[in-house]
Computed example of a mutant assay.
Amino acid sequence: MTVKFPLIGEPLGLDLLNTRPAGAGDLIADPAGLGAWLAVQAGRVAPVDGVGAAEVAAVHAVREAAGPALAAARRGERPPA
Results as ranks from 00 to 15, higher is better:
residue 30 D to R: 08
residue 1 M to C: 02
residue 54 A to P: 05
residue 40 V to P: 11
residue 35 G to V: 11
residue 77 E to D: 14
residue 72 A to Y: 04
residue 25 G to Q: 05
residue 49 D to L: 14
residue 14 L to T: 02
residue 47 P to K: 14
residue 48 V to Q: 15
residue 3 V to A: 01
residue 6 P to K: 09
residue 28 I to Y: 03
residue 2 T to I: 04
residue 21 P to D: 04
residue 70 L to N: 02
residue 60 H to G: 04
residue 75 R to T: 00
residue 42 A to S: 15
residue 63 R to D: 06
residue 49 D to F: 08
residue 35 G to N: 10
residue 81 A to R: 14
residue 77 E to H: 07
residue 78 R to V: 13
residue 19 T to I: 02
residue 75 R to W: 00
residue 39 A to N: 13
residue 52 G to P: 01
residue 66 A to Q: 11
residue 63 R to P: 12
residue 78 R to T: 14
residue 44 R to Q: 15
residue 70 L to W: 11
residue 13 G to T: 10
residue 28 I to K: 04
residue 4 K to P: 01
residue 20 R to Q: 13
residue 64 E to C: 03
residue 31 P to D: 11
residue 50 G to M: 12
residue 4 K to T: 15
residue 79 P to L: 06
residue 81 A to H: 09
residue 39 A to L: 11
residue 69 A to G: 14
residue 13 G to N: 02
residue 47 P to D: 13
residue 15 D to A: 07
residue 50 G to N: 13
residue 53 A to H: 10
residue 19 T to W: 01
residue 66 A to W: 13
residue 76 G to N: 06
residue 51 V to N: 06
residue 39 A to I: 07
residue 28 I to L: 04
residue 69 A to H: 06
residue 42 A to I: 03
residue 24 A to L: 07
residue 43 G to I: 13
residue 9 G to H: 05
residue 65 A to P: 00
residue 67 G to Y: 09
residue 45 V to L: 14
residue 73 A to I: 09
residue 42 A to F: 10
residue 5 F to D: 01
residue 47 P to F: 13
residue 5 F to N: 03
residue 39 A to V: 03
residue 50 G to Y: 12
residue 61 A to W: 06
residue 66 A to S: 07
residue 73 A to Q: 10
residue 44 R to S: 11
residue 41 Q to V: 01
residue 78 R to H: 03
residue 50 G to A: 12
residue 15 D to H: 02
residue 43 G to P: 10
residue 43 G to E: 10
residue 2 T to F: 03
residue 51 V to P: 09
residue 73 A to V: 11
residue 12 L to K: 06
residue 62 V to E: 13
residue 25 G to D: 09
residue 70 L to K: 07
residue 17 L to W: 07
residue 11 P to R: 15
residue 34 L to H: 10
residue 60 H to W: 11
residue 40 V to A: 08
residue 65 A to Q: 15
residue 51 V to G: 05
residue 12 L to Q: 02
residue 44 R to K: 14
residue 5 F to H: 07
residue 7 L to F: 14
residue 11 P to G: 04
residue 56 V to D: 02
residue 14 L to H: 11
residue 76 G to S: 12
residue 52 G to R: 14
residue 30 D to V: 07
residue 78 R to A: 11
residue 49 D to S: 15
residue 56 V to S: 09
residue 4 K to Y: 01
residue 66 A to G: 04
residue 34 L to A: 09
residue 56 V to Q: 09
residue 60 H to A: 15
residue 68 P to M: 09
residue 17 L to A: 01
residue 55 E to L: 15
residue 17 L to I: 01
residue 71 A to L: 15
residue 1 M to N: 04
